[in-house]
C-alpha cells in the first residue's frame, strides 16, 4: 500500500507543470555552473599543475556544483511538498485520506517516498551531467559516488522534513513559507556559530560537506536518519490527532 501511495504521489507531481519547471531550471542551473567553473578551472589548471596542487577538478568544479545542486533541492523541494498534506487539507481531500482505513504511518511514508521519487530525476540528471565531465578529466569515482549518495540522502531527508512542515498547515502557501524559513535557517546555522558550539550539531552543511569531501562519517548518517525519523513521527502524530478530531 505504501508503494501505491508513493506512486500516486509521484503521478500527481508529474501531472503538474511545477515539477517539470523545477527539473528544467535545476538542470540548467547546475550545468551552467558546472561548465562556467570548468572554464575557470581550465584557465588556472597549468599553474595548478606546475605548483603540484593537491586540489583538482573534483574539488574545484564537481563538488562546488554538487553544493549548488543542494541549494536547488533546498529551494525546490518545498515547492513540491507544499501540496502533499497542506494542499490536500486546503482542497478538502485530506478528509478522504483520514476516513480511509490506512494507518497514518503508511500514508506519511508513502507521501514522503512519492515526493522523493519526484526529486530523483533532478538528482539523476545533474549527477549524470557532472559525471560526464569525467570524459575530459580523471575524476575520483569513489568520491563522485559518495557525493551522489549524499544528494540522495539529503533529498530523502528534505522530503521527510518538508512533508512534516506541510502537515502543520492547512494552506500550501503557509507550508511553503515555513519550509523555506526552517531549511534556510538550518542551511545558515553553521555560519552563525563557531566550530565547537553545540548549535553546529543541528546545522545542515557541516553534515553534507564531509561527504562532498569524500569522508563518510557515522555522525552525518545519524543526523539525517535521526532528524528524518523525528519528522516522520511528528507527522504521524499530527495526522493521528487530525483523525481524532475528525
Amino acid at each position: 500500500m505504501i508503494a501505491r501511495i508513493a506512486r500516486h504521489e509521484w503521478h500527481r507531481q508529474r501531472a503538474g507543470l511545477t515539477f517539470w519547471l523545477l527539473l528544467a531550471a535545476g538542470q540548467m542551473t547546475v550545468a551552467w555552473l558546472a561548465f562556467a567553473q570548468l572554464e575557470a578551472f581550465a584557465d588556472i589548471a597549468p599553474r595548478l599543475k606546475a605548483g603540484g596542487a593537491t586540489l583538482g577538478a573534483t574539488d574545484l568544479v564537481v563538488m562546488p556544483t554538487f553544493n549548488s545542486l543542494l541549494l536547488v533541492l533546498l529551494l525546490g523541494t518545498p515547492l513540491l511538498a507544499m501540496g502533499s498534506i497542506a494542499g490536500e487539507a486546503h482542497s478538502g481531500r485530506l478528509a478522504l485520506w483520514l476516513a480511509s482505513p490506512l494507518s497514518a504511518s503508511r500514508i506519511i511514508v508513502g507521501k514522503v517516498l512519492g515526493l522523493w521519487l519526484g526529486l530523483l530525476p533532478l538528482v539523476a540528471s545533474a549527477s549524470v551531467t557532472l559525471a560526464a565531465l569525467g570524459i575530459g578529466v580523471a575524476l575520483d569515482p569513489a568520491r563522485l559516488a559518495l557525493a551522489v549518495a549524499a544528494m540522495l540522502i539529503v533529498s530523502l531527508w528534505l522530503a521527510a522534513v518538508t512533508v512534516w512542515l506541510s502537515s502543520l498547515f492547512d494552506r500550501p502557501a503557509a507550508a511553503l513559507t515555513a519550509s523555506y524559513a526552517v531549511l534556510l535557517f538550518l542551511w545558515l546555522l553553521d555560519t552563525f556559530s563557531g566550530d565547537a558550539t553545540s548549535w553546529r550539531t543541528w546545522a545542515l552543511l557541516p553534515h553534507v560537506q564531509p561527504m562532498l569531501r569524500g569522508l563518510l562519517r557515522a555522525q552525518d548518517l545519524t543526523y539525517f536518519a535521526a532528524t528524518a525519523l523525528t519528522a516522520l513521527l511528528l507527522t504521524m502524530r499530527g495526522l493521528d490527532r487530525r483523525r481524532g478530531r475528525a
Binding site: A142, R143, T201, R213, G214, L215, L216, A218, T222, A226
Partner: peptide, 17 residues
C-alpha cells in the same frame, strides 16, 4: 542520538588520494 554519534563516531575516507 546526535551526541552519542558525535562522541563515538567512525569515518571512512573514500578518496583515491
Amino acid at each position: 542520538s546526535l551526541r552519542v554519534a558525535e562522541r563515538h563516531t567512525w569515518q571512512v575516507d573514500v578518496t583515491a588520494n
